[in-house]
Structure formats: C-alpha cells, structure tokens
Design a protein around this nucleic acid. Structure first.
Length: 707
RNA sequence: GGACGAUUAGCUCAGUUGGCUAGAGCGUCUCGUUUACACCGAGAAGGUCGUAGGUUCGAGUCCUACAUCGUCCACCA
C-alpha cells in the first residue's frame, strides 16, 4: 500500500501505466468467438492532436475497452494518413518561408522533403494519441502511403477502371492556382464576401443603337462568353431571343437564348454565359451545345484566346482593365455593391478558378445505389439516426468525383502510356518507354479503403482480413460523413462486396464554453495534451465525454476537467480506504448469510452493473459514465462506505468480515466498470492490490466485466 | 430556397420507450477541520423545462404553429 499516497497524482502514473500495458502486450487481440473491431480514423501524419481527436479517440477507446473486458476478441487498429493535399500545402508553406518553391526543387527532391517531414512528425502524433490512453494494437499500425497500402490503392484503381467506374475526361473542374491542382467539389468551401455586380451593355447586332444589359460579378470572363441567356417568360427580352449581340471588347457575335434556369429578378434578368469558367454556365452550355472558349490558364492568367491587350494579365488585373475600358466606351451601365459567395480552396485558401482540364473521375451513381441500400436495409446503422437523412441526401445527389490531383505527395496514378497505348495496373509494365501519369490521387481515395486496406486487402486470404473484416464500429466526427464515411461505404461495397462496418457512431464538434468554434483567430483553442498534463488524462476523457450525446456539439470548458480530476482522487481515496481494511484477501460469504443492509448494498451494485452494461451495449457512453460517476461518489463513497466505516471500527468480528467482503466486491466491480472511462487511475490502483485479492488478474485492462 | 438540431437553475449540460414532487457539475450562501479524500462532508437558495395551442388520467418528454440561436445542403450571373 506504500504507493497509495494521497492525493492521486495522475502525472506520475500515466506514462508508466501505458508502458506497462504495451510491454505486456495488453492491447493485442485475444482469440474469442465474438469479434469487436474498430479502425481508428487516421489523423494526418504531420498534424498535431486537437481536441476533436481527443474526443473521438476517447469514445473509441471506451467502447474498445468495454468490449475487451467483455471477453471479446478486440482489435483497435491505429494508423495515420498521408493527407496528400493538406500535408503538401503545409510543407510548401514552410519551404516558401525559406524562399523555396516546389517547382524549383523538382518532384523527387520535394517528395523526399515531405517524407522527412512525415518521419519527423509521425512520432509526435503517435505519442499524443498514446497520451490519450488509446488501447490500440500498435503492431498493426497502418500508414496510407505505405508500400502495402499502395498495393491496395492501385488494385482498387485498376479494378474500378476495368469496370468502367473510373474514367478520364476533359471537364470543368475546380482549380486552385496557388496549389496548382484540381480539387474536388468537397474541397471547396463557400464564403460570403463583399463583391461588385457590374451591369454591362452588349450592343445588339441587328440594331447597334439598342443594347441588352447583363449583370456579372466577373467581368473578366466576358471575353470567353458564348451566349446571353434570359428567362423564356421575361417579356422584357422575349423579342430578343434568337437575335445576336456583339461581345464588347472582342466583337464576336453571340446568340441570345432562353432557359428556365435564369432568375428574372436577379440583376438585369439577362446573364452572360461563359461555359469554360463557371459551373452553371458549363452545364447550360452543354445543354445548348454552345462553344467552350477557354480564356484562363492554370496560372490564373488570360491566355491567347483573348485580344492582345489582355493576354497575360492575371484575372484580377484583367477585371480592372476591362471595367475601365468598358467605362470609357460607355458600356458600363452601373456597379452595385453586393455580398456573394465565393468558392475558396480548403487547403490553399485561394479563390477557386473553374477551368477546363483533363482529370480522372469516379463514376458515382452506380456506387451510390448500393450505399443507400446498405443503410436502408439496416446493414449499416448510423448513430444518431438523423444523420441517415443527411447521408441519403448527399448520396442521392452525388456528382462524379474528381480524383486526380496535380500534386506530388500521394499515390501516383497507376496509369502508364507509351505512344497511343495505355496500361492500367498495379505494377509498371516491364518493357521500356512507358511513362506513368504525372498526377496523384485525391487523399480520400486511399482513405476510403481504410477499413480493409489495413487488414490485408486485396489479399482476401490474409488472416486479418478473414478474421476482422467487416469491422464493427466506425467512430468519427459528423463533419466528414461525406468526405470519408459515405465513400468508405461505397468503395467497400464495390471492392469487397461487404459493408465496411456495422455501426457508425458520429460525434459532434468540440466548441469553446461559449459555443464558438475553436480557431486560431479567436485564440480559444485548447490543447488536449496540455489539459492532460494539468488534470490528468482520465479527467480529460471524462470532461470530454460526459454530458454529450452522439452527433451533438460539445461546449467544452477546461474547468470541467477539474471536477473529474477530483473524481479520480475520489476513486483513489475510496480505494485506499477499502484496501487498507480489506487486507490481503477476503473470504467470500454467501448472500444468504449476509444481513439486509449488506444484501441491499450488493443489490444496488447489481442494478448499477446491469444499467451500465445496457447503456454501453447501446453505445450510450455519456449516460453510462454519468451513472458510474454518480453512484460511485454519492452512493458508494458517501453512503455505503460511511455505514461500513462504523462497523469496521467497532463492529463484531463477524460483521467486520462481512463488511470487508461487501466493500471489496463493490470496489472490484466498480474499478472494472470505471476502467474504460478512466483507465489510468483504475489500473494504477489495481497494480497496488494484493495478488490474492486480484485472483491472479495481473491487469485491469484484461479483466472480466461483471455480470 | 431545402433539411436538421438546440432552447431545462447564474453558467455548461443530463433527463433512454410520456409517470418528474424536474436532476448533475461548476458557481453562490451557511455550517463542519470527523485519521479514505478540503481535489472533502452536511445543508440551503435558485427553474411557470423558448412562446401559443392540441392529444392524454397524466407532457420537459408526443403533435401543430411561431420565435430566437446554430449547423448542413443547394443557389446566388
């Protein structure tokens, strides 16, 4: 009992306890009929642990530890994500500080640089995860850009290509000038920004004394206009439909057409159409078979398809010049200040430029149908249920997914060409002169394979894949339900024919105590590792998880951790008290021979056990934790221990024996049940308990859940 | 424009299928230094559960409308 001094000091014990578990291989799956498999959402390998990771890994770890205690064969599989665009953007930014550009460095050098980053920061994120106490099997740690994982990615690509689910084509895509890459629709974030709406006169071809006024926020794109569109029922313009207008500054004749897509009320009710540089215009252009005139290059500058005066100008400079030129020609009717939404690149922060380029796409419609059925049929259960609707809505309205990126950090596309020949496969063709596609895959393409690529797929005979796939529960934030969850479901059904997991548990966003998002600019970010140092990981875990419901955002105040630090101390002291009286072993007593009070105590314990077990089986982590907290403190410590205290001091020998037995029974069961929530204090205490009392159970992690 | 969530004590939130005389933590106040714990104990104050209707023997819980806040999706020339 020497080590059980007061008060409980988390800092002194946590690291040692984690090492103890690892050294004794406590997190490795132990063969059992019932499996429980959780794949950890892999954090960005160069990232640092934020409060959202802390919440997620706590919930995962609670479920995992619970099922391990139930005696199931538990695999909690960790990994990190190479996070293509995110990592590359960060490394580029760092290099830029030293005045180095990636194109000057060259591909090989740059990629090598990123690998060094990866090696350097990988350890940091892993250490931080361990601070949270995650009980995963590190011997199986995955990395989404490892050689083995790459084979899975290439196999997936090749098979889907063969089935026609992956195709290459020239389409309008979101282009980040800063990142020099295409990005998918999901990587575009829309922001409200102040802008200007320019009203421009286009003179009519058949009568140059008259004009039609179009309104636009992007006057510079007018040089690529193919038409003017009005609403078919707009009486102002009815007569003009079918006529032509003269494109100012260019002189080209463009038709005036009609389409229901136009909003009569907005601007002048007449829209200029630039199929090469606007998503809606692109679609309308396709519908009306209009010319696509590409005027902006990948560097965001006007190209040779515009009049000499504007060639080589950046779009912003071109806008200024065009507005001035129109004004001096008396073709600028007016300018309005408006607020409008602009698409911004999630990772590079620049305004997305829609341009035409050749990219690889995944055909989503055929995948979507199965993904819907999987949830409708109940093969996959989403918690909370309301997210099913959001999931259906997204999957139902899905567009093809642009998966090629003009980046260097990632899985290079497994396509080789030689003259007119194309080869798609897992390995490069043997003979010479084949050239591999320069682009890499969207990082989410590889993440989408995570639950099976980490278990040995495409080798479906590998023992891990056979034993542990499909996985049991996927726990993640609701913010990546589209990026990740839906895509995993689709890819898994397509490639393995199975659902990737049975249950999806979604947690919410961690906000500050006022309900604001945590952000650098607000200065309200809290570092989980800091909080763990201050109050202990057990306290942090409880503070994160208590009083939360699935899918609900958490307003997190660090002071809450203080309350649970106190609780850790409470467990500590209650244990000290009980253990100091119980001695080295305890004599079991039949329930029949116990008096009514003792029986009552044990009956209450049994109620608690069945409540907590039931709640955890329903994944109701917060309520289970609250029950334990409340009962342990306010029933066990405040009432039961207090009552027995008197008996232990001046009761008869027989009564004292009974008290010892009852107290030990309760303490033992409580320690086990509290363990998933507060693994460190409980294990620390367990290690101080005499072996006789422990019935040979060396570790609490691998103990048996009471029933 | 479409969908979803929230609204319960000063603050942050629980309240699982309607049984609540509405709970917890923190905070506030009073008392108490009793050898498990002051990172404690005993007790107190504090809520017409957003508003208005409805269903029901009974509604914080179900239904309808509204209000406020928040989130997501789509569109914004």
């Amino acid at each position: 009992m020497s080590k059980l001094e007061k008060p409980y000091n988390a800092g002194e014990n946590e690291q040692a306890i984690y090492n103890l578990w690892q050294e004794n291989n406590c997190f490795a799956p132990v063969s059992a009929p019932q499996k429980y498999v959780v794949a950890m959402p892999p954090p960005n390998v160069t990232g640092r642990l934020h409060i959202g990771h802390a919440l997620g890994s706590t919930i995962q770890d609670i479920l995992v530890r619970f099922h391990r205690l139930l005696g199931e064969e538990v695999l909690y599989l960790p990994g990190t994500d190479h996070a293509g665009i995110a990592t590359q953007a960060v490394v580029e930014r760092e290099l830029a500080k030293k005045g180095i550009k990636r194109f000057e460095m060259g591909r090989e050098n740059f990629v090598q640089e990123v690998w060094q980053w990866k090696d350097k920061y990988h350890e940091r994120i892993v250490e931080q995860l361990k601070v949270m106490g995650v009980s995963c099997d590190w011997s199986r740690e995955a990395f989404t850009l490892s050689e083995q994982y790459n084979e899975a990615v290439y196999t997936a690509f090749a098979r889907m290509h063969e089935k026609g689910l992956i195709y290459r084509g020239e389409y309008l895509t979101n282009w980040s000038v800063k990142g020099q890459t295409a990005i998918s629709d999901d990587e575009v974030i829309y922001e409200d920004r102040p802008g200007k709406l320019y009203y421009i006169k286009y003179l009519l071809s058949h009568n140059v004394d008259q004009s039609i006024i179009v309104a636009t926020t992007r006057p510079e794109t007018m040089l690529g206009d193919s038409a003017i569109v009005v609403h078919p029922k707009d009486h102002r313009y009815k007569k003009l439909v079918g006529k032509f207008a003269k494109l100012p500054l260019v002189g080209r004749e463009i038709p005036i057409i009609s389409d229901n897509a136009v909003d009569k009320e907005f601007g002048s009710g007449a829209v200029k159409l630039t199929p090469a540089h606007d998503k809606n215009d692109w679609e309308l252009g396709q519908k009306h078979r209009l010319a696509v005139i590409n005027i902006i290059n990948t560097f965001g500058k006007l190209n040779e398809n515009v009049p000499d005066a504007y060639q080589g100008l950046k779009t912003s400079a071109a806008r200024e010049k065009i507005v001035n030129d129109l004004d001096s020609l008396n073709l600028l009717e007016k300018v309005e200040e408006i607020k409008h939404r602009v698409g911004v690149s999630e990772r590079y922060g620049d305004i997305v430029e829609p341009i035409i380029s050749t990219q690889w796409f995944v055909k989503m419609k055929p995948l979507a149908q199965k993904a819907i059925e999987a949830v409708e049929s109940g093969a996959i259960k989403i918690i909370p249920k309301r997210f099913e609707k959001i999931y259906f809505h997204w999957v139902n309205n899905i567009h093809d997914w642009c998966i090629s990126r003009q980046l260097w950090w990632g899985h290079r596309i497994p396509v080789w060409t030689k003259g007119a020949q194309t080869y798609v496969g897992v390995k490069a063709p043997q003979d010479k002169n084949w050239i591999q596609d320069e682009d890499v895959l969207d990082t989410w393409f590889s993440s989408a394979l995570f639950p099976f690529a980490t278990l040995g797929w495409p080798n479906t005979k590998s023992s891990d894949y056979k034993k542990y796939f499909p996985t049991s529960t996927l726990e993640t934030g609701y913010d990546i339900i589209f990026f990740w969850v839906a895509r995993m479901v689709m890819m898994s059904l397509e490639l393995t024919g199975k659902v990737p997991f049975e249950t999806v548990y979604l947690h919410g966003l961690v906000r500050d105590e006022k309900g604001r998002k945590m952000s650098k600019s607000l200065g309200n970010i809290v570092e989980p590792v800091e909080l763990s140092r201050q109050w202990g990981t057990d306290a942090l875990r409880m503070a994160l998880v208590m009083g939360t419901s699935p899918g609900g955002d958490v307003n997190f105040s660090p002071t809450r951790a203080k309350g649970y630090r106190n609780f850790a101390n409470k467990i500590w002291n209650a244990s000290r008290f009980v253990l100091s009286h119980v001695g080295k072993e305890v004599v079991p007593i039949e329930v029949k021979k116990l008096d009514i009070h003792n029986r009552g105590d044990l009956a209450q314990l049994n109620n608690l056990i069945s409540d907590v077990t039931g709640l955890l089986n329903e994944n109701n982590v917060a309520l289970a934790g609250e029950k334990l907290y409340d009962w342990f403190w306010h029933t066990f410590a405040d009432i039961i221990i207090e009552r027995h205290k008197k008996i232990l001091l001046d009761g008869k020998e027989e009564e004292r024996l009974a008290s010892r037995y009852v107290l030990w029974c309760i303490l033992e069961k409580c320690l086990i049940m509290l363990h998933p929530f507060m693994p460190f204090v409980t294990e620390t205490i367990w290690q101080e308990i005499p072996l006789g009392l422990r019935k040979g159970q060396k570790f609490l992690v691998n103990n048996k859940w009471p029933s």
